[in-house]
Write a protein that binds this DNA or RNA. Structure first.
Lengths: 165, 165
DNA sequence: ACAATGTATCTCAGCGCTAAGCTATCTCGG
DNA sequence: CCGAGATAGCTTAGCGCTGAGATACATTGT
């Protein structure tokens, strides 16, 4: 059995036999798989009028310590997008009544973002469905394979500096 | 040692002990790693005034059978983007003189895209640097780990329908 | 006390992509 | 041979993000 990347690797080996293209066997698959998985996850989000960006914000707030308040800066660090993107995400979520921005008494530059009751209800409704989808996407792997995969990905992430500070 | 996803999993387990969030240990890392890797690859592309989109088109043409001619439709299938995106990618590359569009004699609806000499020179210059970067990104893994990883990712891709037709 | 520097957030032009729809051409059954 | 449907590529409005920069407030060193 062969996937799309196998075909790509074959082509390169015919066309450029002088190059070692084996790293593409890993990185090409990573990128392709992430795209397919994201498409699959997007379906579940869409069923609740969400997309990944909004889901990420709601989920990050939901899993934070009570009282579930974070600054835009916290959200930026967690989401790997720029501050401008966070502002716009919050604008959209606030307009839908899913989050609330309040002044930060302790620091006049800053803002506190929290879930509204509606926002919390929504994320609590979506989360189990999201986990089902993730589980289904991983259905081809045994538990042991998943563990090994998670561990290997963690090694790579750590080597690229993605650690808890 | 713990990465960002470990922290996220801990948070969920405290906040929602009723849910099994283990799938996030795999899918969260996949998504996060892909983003970090893409940032790293983008640096190499930028050194040659390229981005991933342009690189993908040039590389797909370069590895195709002589005479390195593909239709926009072929490029669309290979790249997982819409036809509109392919049109725009080709517009940009054509304006820079890196690819050429010619009529398809056999089918008046269609077009043939080929590399110019300049385009071919560029991709041949970038490709080895790109592979070095990919290799460096995978530096934390042994050869055996890379093989296992590639195989596992392929299983997932196949289960999601990403096969050669 | 305050100037200089740092930090938090927001603003916005520009970019690449998608989704929907358009035009031109091809295919095929009747 | 022709009309209906399929196919290939292009167009474009709208979307979310980036990168650069603006604003306001906080911190630091002297």
């Amino acid at each position: 059995m062969a996937d799309h990347v196998d075909m790509v690797l074959d082509q390169w080996r015919r066309r450029r036999p002088d190059l070692d293209v084996s790293p593409m066997g890993v990185i090409g698959r990573l990128s392709r798989l992430t795209q397919l998985v994201n498409t699959e996850l997007a379906r579940t989000f869409a069923e609740h009028d969400l997309d990944r960006a909004s889901f990420d914000v709601l989920a990050t707030l939901r899993r934070s310590d009570p009282p579930h308040q974070l600054t835009p800066n916290d959200l930026m660090k967690a989401s790997m997008v720029t501050s401008g993107a966070v502002t716009q995400r919050l604008d959209r979520l606030e307009a839908r009544g899913l989050v609330r921005r309040t002044r930060n008494e302790a620091d006049g530059r800053s803002v506190k973002v929290s879930l509204t009751e509606e926002g919390r209800d929504l994320i609590d409704r979506v989360l189990p469905r999201h986990l089902e989808t993730e589980n289904r996407v991983l259905g081809a792997l045994t538990g042991k394979q998943r563990d090994t995969l998670a561990r290997t990905l963690r090694e790579l992430l750590e080597s690229l500096g993605d650690t808890q500070e």
